[in-house]
């Protein structure tokens, strides 16, 4: 049995996570499972995951402080 709780925002297929990059900078992303966000350090943006769907739209991303 897998004891880790499901990630916030729903589970995303690891094969999909592997090929995703920041749409603005084309740099790699960090997956924050607790917040359910894909973080682009280079762009200072956090892309949300909703219902297991990564929302890779710059205008819907959270600006990092």
């Amino acid at each position: 049995m897998n004891q880790t709780p499901p990630p916030a925002g729903g589970a995303v297929d690891p094969q999909l996570l592997e090929i995703l990059v920041c749409p603005v900078t084309k740099k790699p992303l960090r997956y924050d499972r607790d917040r359910g966000e894909l973080i682009s350090d280079a762009a200072g943006l956090a892309y949300p995951v909703r219902d297991g769907i990564p929302i890779m739209l710059p205008d819907q991303a959270r600006k990092l402080p």
Partner: peptide
Amino acid sequence: APMAARAGGMPLAADEEWLPFA
């Protein structure tokens, strides 16, 4: 996203003008 969810593949919301792929 709601349209991607019905499309049949692994869903992803993104803009053709801002592609998020390596």
